[in-house]
Design a protein around this nucleic acid. Structure first.
Length: 441
RNA sequence: GGGCCCGUAGCUCAACGGUAGAGCGGGGGACUCUUAAUCCCUAGGUUCAGAGUUCGAAUCUCUGCGGGCUCACCA
């Protein structure tokens, strides 16, 4: 705005404001209960000597010039230089006070609608003053207003003692532009946006919602209900709202939570995995999307993710959750330990194949086999692709842990547990497993 | 003290006058290389409370309670 003053375009409004200074004064008093001194003029002179704006006081408008003085003690935050004199307040020599400038802009630019934040829209606030100024000083209906709400970051202050606050620049690091736009577009404008990324799945969720809208825009069937304006919301969430929506919507976007897993497995070529899951090579655009998401994922895991999103190899010992393992799973783990020791696979694929192979031989459903592995190594019933997880660990640790998990026994009544009902068709395992069990105790 | 927004299933929200819904989570099930994936089933919430308007209210009005934000000047 400040570059408009020198062009002279604001001059007519400055003149009007000065001519109607009494109306402005009265209006401030009426609308906002702000009392201006007698003879006050709605103008801020730019001191020709020191260039300060806030330190000057103007009076005595004669239709061509005003008297001004740059006062040392007018405001507390700056000291004027003491210059005084008369000046023509046009062409950049002076500025209008905020509320008048706002109202003048509406006339200058022909604004018909201008939403504003609720801090300005409060009763007797800036918006009320500018509206009244437009009507009474510039003889114009103010533009249509629409007060919008704020974005709250989980009720947290901007900077927390832990340094994991929610300053804008920090959020931007974890939420890429298009997802951030979606965050603002989705709720109604008069509704405050509660965004609490800390320890929640708020960030993954906004990615998922974005992907869901993309899916819908691409014509795919998506789960759940869609908002009435789903296609428009998606279009305007895009950085370039003139972009080819269908093309954008059709791009392959790996799910955030899935990437969060892949990113936590050491030695994984995430791009290769994602391409394999897509079924074809990634396009340049998709590579860019992946890069952005991976950065977001890492930032999220680093600063915001809840504990349950972090996977961690339980190095210290067999997780307590292993108590819940079934007999069939223990037997399988024992067999798998032997197979792994006899012929350790060298790759994630190899491990993955071995898991299925041994599970098949033991007639154990794959789901239970995988579940047993996750419990043994992560202390949870699910996790990232087990083959690659095992491939990232040392051979001896893997075998050792498998044996320990196979031998863990709840053992409430002293019954050794070798009831034989786990043998079944699965030859491998049986006796060895039980021996291991005894040894482990 | 004034203004605005919100209070609906564990969580995030949708329905904005016409039989309370979705996603996620939770629970159950399926799946021999998909394994926080995918698919199927399931949850039963006095819609903050009270009063009013209406044939009918989560939805409109009023009051109360609770939560959040905002309000000199300057820009």
């Amino acid at each position: 705005m400040s570059e408009i003053y020198p062009t002279g375009q604001m001059d007519p409004f400055i003149r009007t404001a000065l001519d109607r200074a009494e109306i402005v004064r009265d209006l401030y008093r009426r609308v906002s209960k702000v009392e201006r001194p007698e003879g006050w003029l709605p103008i801020s002179i730019v001191c020709p000597a020191c260039g300060r704006v806030g330190t000057t006081l103007a009076r005595d408008w004669d239709g061509a010039t005003v008297a001004f003085e740059c006062l040392p003690n007018y405001v507390t935050w700056a000291a004027g230089c003491g210059t005084a004199g008369r000046i023509t307040p046009f062409g950049g020599a002076a500025k209008l006070p905020w509320n008048l400038e706002w109202a003048a802009q509406w006339s200058l630019l022909g604004v018909t609608i201008e939403p504003c934040g609720k801090d300005l829209a409060t009763a007797g606030g800036s918006r009320d003053r500018s509206d009244a100024l437009a009507r009474e000083v510039f003889d114009r209906e103010p533009p249509r207003n629409l007060a919008y709400e704020f974005l709250n970051i989980g009720g947290r202050k901007m900077s927390t003692s832990k340094g994991r606050g929610a300053a804008a620049h920090e959020i931007v690091e974890v939420v890429p532009p298009e997802q951030l736009r979606l965050l603002f577009l989705r709720p109604r404008p008069n509704q405050a946006i509660e965004f609490d990324p800390d320890g929640t799945d708020a960030i993954p969720r906004i990615f998922d919602e974005f992907d869901r809208l993309a899916g819908a825009a691409a014509g795919a069937e998506v789960k759940g209900e869609l908002p009435a304006d789903a296609d428009r919301i998606f279009r305007y969430a895009l950085l370039d709202s003139a972009a080819d929506v269908a093309a954008e919507a059709g791009r392959y976007r790996p799910a955030f939570s899935h990437l969060a897993l892949l990113a936590q497995i050491p030695g994984t070529d995430v791009a290769a995995r994602v391409a394999a899951e897509k079924g074809s090579a990634l396009t340049d655009e998709e590579r860019a999307i992946l890069g952005l998401r991976l950065a977001a994922v890492r930032g999220w895991l680093d600063a915001y993710a809840p504990e349950r999103a972090r996977i961690e190899i339980q190095r210290d010992g067999l997780p307590a959750e292993a108590a819940a393992l079934g007999e069939d799973q223990r037997a399988w783990l024992g067999a798998f330990a032997r197979a792994a020791e006899a012929g350790p696979p060298s790759s994630g694929d190899g491990w993955q194949a071995l898991i299925f192979e041994v599970a098949s031989a033991a007639a154990l459903p794959a789901g239970r086999a995988f579940g047993a592995l996750y419990v043994a190594f992560l202390g949870r019933t699910n996790g990232p692709r087990a083959g690659w997880l095992l491939a990232s660990l040392e051979q001896t640790f893997v075998v050792e842990r498998l044996r320990a998990a196979a031998g863990w026994r709840h053992h409430p009544d002293g019954e050794p547990g070798g009831t034989g009902n786990s043998g079944g068709p699965g030859k491998p395992g049986g006796p060895d497993t039980h021996d291991t069990a005894e040894a482990a105790r």
